Computed example of a mutant assay.
Amino acid sequence: MSDPKVLLLPGWQNSGDAHWQSRWEALYGDQRVEQHDWMRPLRGDWIARLEEVLLEQTAPVILVAHSLGCMLTAAWAAHSRNTQKVQAAFLVAPGDPEREELQGALKSWTPIVTHKLPFPSLLLGSHDDPYCSFERARHFADAWGAEFIDYGARGHINADSGLADWPEGRALLQRLVQTSAPQ
């Protein structure tokens, strides 16, 4: 059995150079799923792109999603016939496209998919995330069947949170990889 491939799923507007996802891409060789339009994200387009990249993989996959990438994971899993290719999902600071200030830009992302994910998952929520309340993050974890971690007051758990290479996040990811590995 080969080691799993880490696919990075950034959120709306992508992850900049200082974001932990970009740093992990450079440090560990994780693969970013490049979307066709980061500024005007359409759920159907993003699902199709994730499916395309997933079908290219020969090893099991670990999805590492941030913000809208978490919503992508749930939406893709509800429609794909290839969910068996995913070993687990690491979901960080889900964005909430149903928030009033986000609805205009993210209309294709509602209603939010709340089906249980068909693979193990871990979701980190922050008490002061400007894009998703702590209660909503916990609700998404419950709906998706994800283990929930209260990550304190860390904003959107992004570059502005001062995480740099985020070794603590990588350790949580490694724990998820180990506990979800086929026996």
Results as ranks from 00 to 15, higher is better:
Met1Glu: 10
Met1Phe: 06
Ser2Gly: 08
Leu7Gly: 03
Leu8Gln: 02
Leu9Pro: 03
Leu9Val: 09
Gly11Arg: 00
Trp12Thr: 03
Gln13His: 15
Asn14Phe: 04
Asn14Gly: 13
Gly16Thr: 07
Gly16Ala: 13
Ala18Phe: 10
His19Asn: 12
Gln21Met: 11
Glu25Leu: 06
Leu27Val: 09
Leu27Lys: 14
Leu27Asn: 14
Tyr28Gln: 13
Gly29Ser: 11
Gly29Trp: 06
Gln31Val: 15
Gln31Ile: 15
Val33Asn: 11
Glu34Met: 12
Glu34Gln: 14
Met39Trp: 11
Met39Ile: 11
Pro41Trp: 00
Pro41Asp: 05
Leu42Lys: 12
Leu42Asp: 15
Arg43Ala: 15
Gly44Gln: 15
Gly44Ile: 08
Ile47Glu: 11
Ala48Leu: 08
Ala48Lys: 11
Leu50His: 02
Leu50Val: 11
Glu52Ser: 13
Val53Asp: 07
Leu55Ala: 14
Leu55Lys: 12
Gln57Asp: 07
Ala59Gly: 10
Pro60Trp: 02
Val61Pro: 00
Leu63Asp: 02
His66Val: 09
His66Asp: 10
Ser67Asn: 06
Leu68Trp: 00
Gly69Glu: 01
Cys70Ile: 07
Met71Asn: 06
Ala74His: 00
Ala74Asp: 04
Trp76Pro: 01
Ala78Arg: 01
His79Cys: 13
Ser80Met: 06
Thr83Trp: 05
Gln84Cys: 10
Lys85His: 13
Lys85Ser: 14
Val86Trp: 00
Val86Gly: 03
Phe90Gly: 03
Pro94Ala: 14
Gly95Glu: 03
Asp96Leu: 09
Glu101Phe: 08
Leu102Arg: 09
Gly104Lys: 09
Leu106Ala: 06
Ser108Arg: 05
Ser108Met: 05
Thr110Val: 14
Thr114His: 07
His115Trp: 04
Leu117Thr: 03
Phe119Ile: 08
Phe119Gly: 02
Pro120Glu: 08
Ser121Thr: 04
Leu122Val: 04
Leu123Pro: 01
Leu124Thr: 05
Gly125Gln: 02
Asp129Cys: 07
Asp129Ile: 04
Cys132Gly: 04
Phe134Pro: 00
Glu135Phe: 03
Ala137Tyr: 00
Arg138Trp: 00
His139Phe: 12
Ala143Pro: 00
Ala146Glu: 00
Ala146Arg: 02
Ala146Ile: 02
Glu147Tyr: 01
Phe148Met: 07
Ile149Asn: 03
Asp150Val: 02
Asp150Cys: 06
Gly152Lys: 07
Ala153Tyr: 02
Ile157Tyr: 01
Asn158Met: 03
Ala159His: 05
Asp160Tyr: 04
Asp160Lys: 13
Gly162Cys: 10
Leu163Phe: 03
Leu163Ala: 10
Ala164Ser: 13
Trp166Thr: 03
Trp166Gly: 06
Glu168Arg: 10
Gly169Ala: 08
Gly169Pro: 01
Gly169Glu: 04
Arg170Tyr: 15
Leu172Ala: 12
Leu173Gln: 06
Arg175Met: 08
Arg175Tyr: 06
Leu176Asn: 00
Gln178Asn: 14
Ala181Leu: 13
Pro182Gly: 13
Pro182Gln: 11
Gln183Ser: 13
